[in-house]
Simulated assay, not measured.
Amino acid sequence: MQRSLKFISFLLLITVVLFTGGCAGKEQAPLKIKLGMLPIADNLPFWVAEEKGYFKEAGLDVELVPFPSALERDSAFAAKQIDGAVGDLLAVAAMQNCGTKVKAVAVAQGITPGENRFGILSAPNSGIKKVVQLKNVPIAMSLNTINEFITDGLLLSAGFNQDEIKKTAIPKLPVRLDALLNGTVKAAVLPDPFATLAEQSGANLVLDNTKNTVSPTVVMVRQEALDKNLAGIKKLMQAYTKAVSDIQSKPEQFDNILVEKARVPKQLLDNKENKLKFHFSQPVLPAAQDVEKVVKWMVDHKLLKSNLSYQDLVDARVLEK
């Protein structure tokens, strides 16, 4: 009887060892999170979180992977080479439309007016100073993107009819800026820092979204990463939120990151009279009305095969307490 009890105890010990991995206190390594990083100011909180060590503090293994363009970033999403990035709702919807399951988990910039600034500017010698003068004037932009969506939103809100909004395609921002400043085009839509640089170089700001957010940028994450590593993605956004607080308290301390990583011209940050400022708010979920506007615009422009719902494009679990 005593031998039987010892044998049973031995079997129980073996079972415990197997289930605990045979080594008390050994923890499973965190899943790696790869973020695609464009050289844009919207990514500042992630760069700050890396510099401050907030990812490591949270027990995360995060790699920030640079990409020169949104096209290459989105291709990396499709190939499952990255788990997340900062983009816009149009990019989320377009990838969903093509079968790449990606969802927005938080607004990055554009929560309040003044963040994520886009401007419609006229050439220095165009004579265009008022919004009404833009009617039937070709405006340079990147078509079928956030540029065109924002331009439509701003001008329709200003009382334009859709057929009074004319567009010409110049996808690359530096080329578009040069075309505006040398008068090749009479008007162009530019995001900051290009909009501020154009103003300081003599272009006329006709209209911007400082009173109308129009469309926010978002943190977007692959569905597979959300399902397999929800706890990790939650910690990622907690580190992001901590970095936003740092930026809000003393934004100028991160000017070096904006110059190095986001390629913001240093003279725009050194200009004390007209210093370029980037504003960030604590992350929230995208508003339903913003998602609806994007989907409707994309359907009207035949960029979506079918309507997509809020749940198709947004995952609310990451910001849940």
Rank of each mutant, 00 (worst) to 15 (best):
N182T: 06
K172E: 12
Q238I: 06
N204C: 11
V219C: 07
I165Q: 01
L226D: 02
L143R: 15
I233A: 00
I233M: 09
D152F: 14
D152C: 07
T241S: 13
A243Q: 06
T241V: 11
L205M: 13
L190F: 01
N229K: 08
D227N: 12
V214C: 09
T184Y: 03
I146V: 12
I233D: 00
L177R: 05
D152Y: 15
A169D: 12
A169P: 06
T196D: 07
L230W: 05
K166F: 09
Q162D: 07
E224M: 04
N147T: 08
N204K: 15
V218Q: 00
T184A: 10
R222P: 02
F160G: 03
Q162P: 05
Q223E: 14
A198I: 04
K228S: 12
S142G: 14
I233H: 04
L143V: 15
N182S: 06
A195G: 10
D178Q: 15
I146Q: 11
E199A: 13
S215M: 14
L173R: 13
D227T: 05
A198D: 03
G159T: 00
A169I: 10
I170S: 05
K211P: 01
L190Q: 02
D152K: 05
T168S: 09
D192A: 09
L143H: 14
V189H: 06
G159S: 02
E224V: 08
S215E: 10
V214T: 12
L181M: 01
Y240N: 01
D152I: 05
G202Q: 13
I165E: 00
F160N: 07
L177A: 10
G232Q: 03
D192E: 13
N212Y: 14
F194S: 15
S142A: 15
I233Q: 00
M237K: 06
N182W: 02
D227P: 01
K186M: 06
L205T: 10
M220R: 12
L154W: 07
